[in-house]
Design a protein around this nucleic acid. Structure first.
Lengths: 149, 149
DNA sequence: ATAGCTGCAAATGCTTTGCAAGGCC
DNA sequence: GGCCTTGCAAAGCATTTGCAGCTAT
């Protein structure tokens, strides 16, 4: 096997990685090269929706060296510590959302594309009483959309 | 409910199977013993939430002879023709709901239990405009609940 | 130094499928 | 009889895990 030297082969990430390092340490995770790499893809500004595979493809395309297993591990760890949020839309795969605040989604059932709906643009009046001894953990609204046939 | 006898000729079976037979034929499916059996479990009055495995366990416990593969096939066929509805709650398995009308759910994240919320007890004000050329296919509201820690 | 992380491959768990035998119409 | 359905086992997928080697702190 070929041993690669420990040099980042993709561009311009020192300063964003600097911030990411703090972000990761702040939640108790070591700032490894792999976590910094995918963190730079995920937390670069705009909110994103990814699957393990889409993120892996993207990382590989960007020249990063990271295995799919590590992507899975990182996405789950990021979710555990609140850096990401899982979105339930497709029973066959798991979507992760970099927007962890309370908001909802459009899901295009035709192409699998997810779009955010700002929290204040949806109003859910929840009249029903909860089963006894239960409290609300969260509310998810998914609006499935499709092309005008 | 217990099957009284093993009728295997063209003789009439019990009357709930009689109704089911029509129901199945009405959607273009042959009234096979297996489909009638699980239909009797699913459409016996009250609305139900099942997974392929839970329904299989139940069928076996009721003395029915049916394979898990056939359960999967039947649940998918029933869903295709509108006799069932898929509910997205758990990325690791598929839930089916015998209530196909517009309504929402409580999902107890502690034990995986699903509860219906009548349609008129939830009000979703949908202000956001849809992406161009798209129409709404459906709206799902999932309220995740948990025990009072 | 050492506890934690990575990556590969194998394992897992749910779901689907190929195909021969059997059942419904 | 002909075509659809069933059931088994095998395949398929997304995801997780065991473990040896590597790395961050």
């Amino acid at each position: 096997m070929v041993t690669m030297e420990n040099v980042n082969t993709h561009t311009n990430q020192n300063e964003s990685h600097q911030t990411l390092t703090d972000k990761l340490r702040g939640v108790g995770l070591r700032a490894t090269r792999q976590r910094l790499d995918i963190g730079s893809l995920l937390f670069s500004g705009k909110y994103r929706h990814v699957t393990a595979e889409s993120l892996h493809d993207e990382a590989i395309a960007a020249g990063m060296k990271i295995s799919l297993a590590t992507i899975y591990n990182a996405l789950n760890q990021f979710t555990d510590v609140g850096l990401l949020r899982e979105v339930l839309v497709d029973p066959t795969r798991t979507y992760f959302d970099t927007n962890t605040s309370s908001h909802h989604h459009f899901f295009n059932i035709d192409n699998g594309h997810l779009t955010d709906i700002p929290h204040d643009e949806i109003n859910v009046s929840c009249l029903p009483t909860l089963p006894d001894g239960q409290i609300i953990d969260g509310v998810d609204v998914l609006i499935r959309i499709k092309p005008v046939a």
